[in-house]
Design a protein around this nucleic acid. Structure first.
Lengths: 324, 324
DNA sequence: TTGAAAGCGATACCAA
DNA sequence: TTGGTATCGCTTTCAA
């Protein structure tokens, strides 16, 4: 691989001039042309490790998500990527597997690689930013909220839970079960609170026997649903508080006897890979791509110098603006 | 952020010694201890850009896939990640969107960042490795094969197409349609060849009116299926040559009238997010996770010094060994 | 086992 | 506008 010094020698200029040409800074047209020709002739490619070392930041953005296999997060990734690309940033996607250790390892690497910063869907609410904070790198937290004083974008999960439940009630359901997420996961807890609130508002009962805590994956949803179908009489509806859980619930329902007497299903989230017509379900869509776009925009604003206080943006069901 | 020099000063040793301690090289126990204490006290974190610049490689592995939203590739990513982690490599996932430009941009970045190498599912069969080749970085190609002289792991796509088709024939299907992929995509073409071969072997007809080329996404499968359902009489089976296409096919079938007279569906690939019981379908599973594991293993062998000729590994349906 | 010091390749300051 | 050069933080050779 050619180095900048070789390009400079061939073009008859100094490395400083080569660097300027590559950065688009003002340089006499003829020497600029000479540099470009030399670079092309030598197949020159800039060494980013050298650049990052000197500049103290790279144009890489780490996106850390708890589950790359969840279509919600891959859609977020698309949004982030499309937005970041326009600013010349490349996105590296990291899977934390909802494991605090793996998560902090990736964040430490992002810091240590001098990346521009990170967009993180945290595995736990006490997320520690480590080196990124010390380096004052840009950080945006998405989906789940944390204590720290950083920009955050997410949903109003209580409202999502309420809406889904109210729509079930409007359809005539009265015995509504809820499959929540792991204890301690804020988004799950808030959606569950919304479920309970909607029931109370309608004079209905949020019976503990109709609440289940599942992991937020397909098998969690399936097991919780099988469990709920052992209660007699059956609930007449099941609220799945996330997309993966809903898939598990639908699989379990399909395997259960009972035909039309089976509970209705409501889902908070989207089912892009459904193999049936799901238009009959109560669906509260989330627009993960918008979430990614908004987060990336906030990230870029910080990179470009915005110094205001940490912002908290709440996307509504339509994927739009903050509350105030 | 503390630097190594500061750690060295505090520990009363040279930076060389600090570096040795961090690398686990032999150092007197008491100075090793002093270094560790100093590093901890200063919250020291190694600067990887400096290390990469000096060492000429980093412990990052780029995994470039054509579609992060396809569960096949996210499963591959899990396999790669689990294997790479054990060797201390971190995986950065890059989405090429089946776009040769984006793909080569990510590969150029991998080279320019001095990454250890890349595992690539190429967007086109004339994949150019660019800087990675010049730097002699490790490269493993997966899923789709290319001309270049590099390690490759994939499936026997002709065999997959034949198997799926023969199983449909064994069920009594005679008018079997095929939804292939974009023209020019090798995996799609090979599966289509397998379909045709199976029909011929059974004395059946591979009618052009039963062949469709779709993009390898849900909407492609849906449109192709709607199109096939306009042929009269209907085919009695449809072979979906990839997972996303199968989802689209199932969605279109579900929306079509005809009940039990609707065509059977066979799928090459897996449907982890199916919302119905798909056990009745003809399924030829692919084990993408094994693909990722195998590719990562080959990658690590190269990193550890293996210098043999380029290998071509073909995983069979059971996700196992090479053919010879 | 240890330290001094060269050097990885690019950037940016300073002087011209 | 340009070039010389110090510098970023770490690894590694060489000599002790």
């Amino acid at each position: 691989m050619a180095t900048m010094a070789e390009v400079a020698a061939r073009a008859g200029v100094s490395t400083a001039t080569v660097s300027r040409v590559l950065a688009g800074k003002p340089v006499r047209p003829d020497s600029a042309e000479a540099v470009r020709a030399a670079a092309a002739a030598l197949d020159y490619e800039l060494d980013r490790t050298a650049r990052s070392l000197r500049r103290r930041y790279s144009d890489l953005l780490a996106l850390v998500v708890p589950d790359v296999e969840n279509p919600f997060f891959t859609a977020v990734a698309r949004g982030v990527e499309d937005t970041a690309r326009r600013a010349g940033l490349s996105v590296v996607l990291c899977n934390s597997d909802d494991d605090v250790q793996k998560e902090s390892r990736y964040l430490a690497i992002a810091a240590s690689e001098n990346m521009a910063g990170a967009i993180v869907a945290p595995a736990a609410s006490d997320l520690s930013l480590g080196g990124l904070a010390r380096k004052r790198a840009t950080v945006v937290v998405i989906d789940r909220s944390i204590e720290a004083d950083v920009d955050q974008v997410g949903f109003d999960n209580v409202a999502l839970g309420r809406e889904a439940t109210h729509r079930l009630i409007a359809r005539g359901c009265r015995r509504i079960a809820c499959i929540s997420g792991p204890r301690g996961m804020g988004t799950a807890r808030d959606r569950e609170i919304g479920w309970r609130a909607a029931l109370t508002e309608s004079g209905l009962d949020a019976s503990p026997e109709f609440l289940r805590h599942a992991n937020f994956r397909v098998d969690g949803g399936r097991r919780a649903t099988e469990d709920l179908l052992r209660v007699t009489p059956w609930p007449d509806a099941v609220l799945a508080t996330n997309n993966m859980v809903a898939i598990g619930a639908l699989q379990a329902m399909a395997a259960a006897p009972g035909g039309a007497t089976r509970p209705e299903v409501a889902v908070i989230g989207d089912l892009p890979f459904a193999t049936t017509d799901v238009s009959g379900l109560v669906q509260v869509p989330l627009r993960p791509r918008e979430l990614g776009i908004r987060a990336a925009e906030m990230f870029l604003e910080r990179l470009e110098g915005f110094r205001g206080a940490a912002r908290r943006v709440v996307l509504d069901g339509a994927g739009a603006a903050p509350p105030g």
